[in-house]
Computed example of a mutant assay.
Amino acid sequence: MTDLPDTMQAVVCHGPEDYRLAELPVPRPGPGEALVRVEAVGICASDLKCYHGAAKFWGDANRPAWAETQVIPGHEFVGEVVELDEAAAQRWGIEAGDRVVAEQIVPCGECRYCRRGQYWMCAPHGMFGFKRRTPGAMASYMVYPVEALVHRISKDLPAHHAAFAEPLSCALHAVERATISFDDVVVVAGCGPIGLGMIAGAVAKSPARVIALDVAESKLELAKACGAHDVVNISEQDPVAFVKGLTEGYGADVYLEGTGHPSAVPQGLNLLRKLGTYVEYSVFGSDVTVDWSIISDDKELDVRGAHLGPHCWPAAIRMLERGTLPMDRICSHQLPLSRFQDGLDLVAAGTESVKVSLIPA
């Protein structure tokens, strides 16, 4: 057995707006599992919405609660393998000392979706950082259970860059859902971590044009660094008029929504051409109302959801290892675990940060 401390620092969710730093026992891996020392964990917009009590996580009159209390949050992470048995080593192709990431979903392997290979839609939907059975990474150590989907990643990357594999894989899945063609004009709404990954992924598909929308000039500059051909500050310029002006009045072929703001939904429906494709990735904090006749009678749009990053992790890891994205600028803040509240507040403000990461001691 590796010489480990008895206890560790960890953030624990006790409910909306009630996250606390605690001293907990260091977990021990069971058969077929791996113990990982957490090097970095990103704070996701969905972490923030969960913290603030969004119905998506805590339920309302229309849906039951999905998130659980007494859980360590954090699903964007990277760490070093500390302990594992032979079964885990063979299944995942890893060994002690490797740097590893794991996909955010921990699929059951037995439901209809898992049996069909659609593991990211697993019916029980165990997720790191939201369920008691799968504690997340806002802690010094965590366990990868038997069902985890594990990938190695280079030790040459800064830890907070390596942890970006999770949001980048999500962004790439949204791009895959769009089935982008060479002649397409693609619009990406939002230049946060997901949107920037969408831009880089869309550019890699070689469409005619990628247009980025945001309200922050600093984020639009980052969008250019990720490959956007055009940027529009929607607080100063009408994005619908801009896009139609570039497309002989037709509109964009593809719209990727990555803001989570309700106003981005009708914006996308209005700037798409007839027979265009709308891809929704965001988690919304409140319900969104739109005129559905735009989708049907007006334009006959393809509207597609996107969830998690299935089959996109190897590509995301390659992009990070090859330096495709300006990660020093994207990973704007790294804080010790003890300052998790400052990290949540930075993400909530949205004006000073892009990707905020926590670094356990």
Rank of each mutant, 00 (worst) to 15 (best):
T2I: 09
P5C: 06
P5G: 10
V11E: 02
E17S: 15
R20E: 01
L21V: 13
E23N: 15
V26F: 11
R28I: 01
P29T: 02
P29H: 10
G32I: 07
G32T: 13
A34N: 13
L35H: 02
L35S: 01
R37D: 00
A45M: 06
D47H: 15
Y51Q: 10
K56T: 04
A61E: 15
N62I: 01
R63V: 11
T69D: 10
V71S: 01
V71P: 01
L84R: 00
L84M: 14
I94L: 08
G97Y: 08
V101K: 14
Q104W: 05
Q104Y: 09
Q104N: 11
I105W: 06
G109S: 10
E110L: 11
C111P: 08
C114G: 06
R115A: 06
R115M: 13
Q118E: 14
Y119M: 00
Y119Q: 01
M121W: 13
C122E: 09
A123W: 13
G126L: 11
G126Q: 13
M127I: 12
K131L: 11
R133G: 01
P135Y: 05
A137C: 04
Y144V: 06
V146R: 15
A148C: 02
H151Q: 04
L157F: 09
A163F: 07
A165P: 07
A165F: 10
E166F: 09
E166V: 06
H173Y: 09
A178H: 12
I180L: 05
D183Y: 01
D184P: 04
V185E: 01
G192M: 09
G192L: 06
G195L: 10
A202Q: 07
V203F: 05
K205M: 06
S206W: 00
S206V: 00
L213T: 05
D214K: 12
A216G: 01
A228I: 14
A228C: 09
V231H: 04
S235C: 01
E236W: 02
D238G: 02
P239M: 03
A241R: 15
F242D: 00
L246H: 11
L246G: 00
Y250I: 02
A252R: 08
L256Y: 14
L256T: 14
V265E: 04
Q267R: 12
N270M: 04
R273N: 00
L275A: 06
G276D: 08
Y281K: 12
V283Q: 15
V283E: 09
F284S: 02
G285I: 03
W292F: 13
W292M: 09
I295N: 02
S296Q: 12
D297C: 04
D297K: 14
D298C: 08
E300I: 03
L301C: 02
D302T: 15
V303S: 03
G305S: 11
P310E: 08
H311D: 04
H311N: 05
P314I: 11
I317Y: 07
I317H: 08
L320A: 01
L320Q: 02
L325F: 03
R329V: 06
S332A: 10
S332K: 11
L335M: 14
L337D: 11
S338F: 03
D342N: 08
G343W: 12
L344T: 14
A348M: 05
G350C: 05
E352W: 08
V356K: 08
I359Q: 13
I359Y: 10
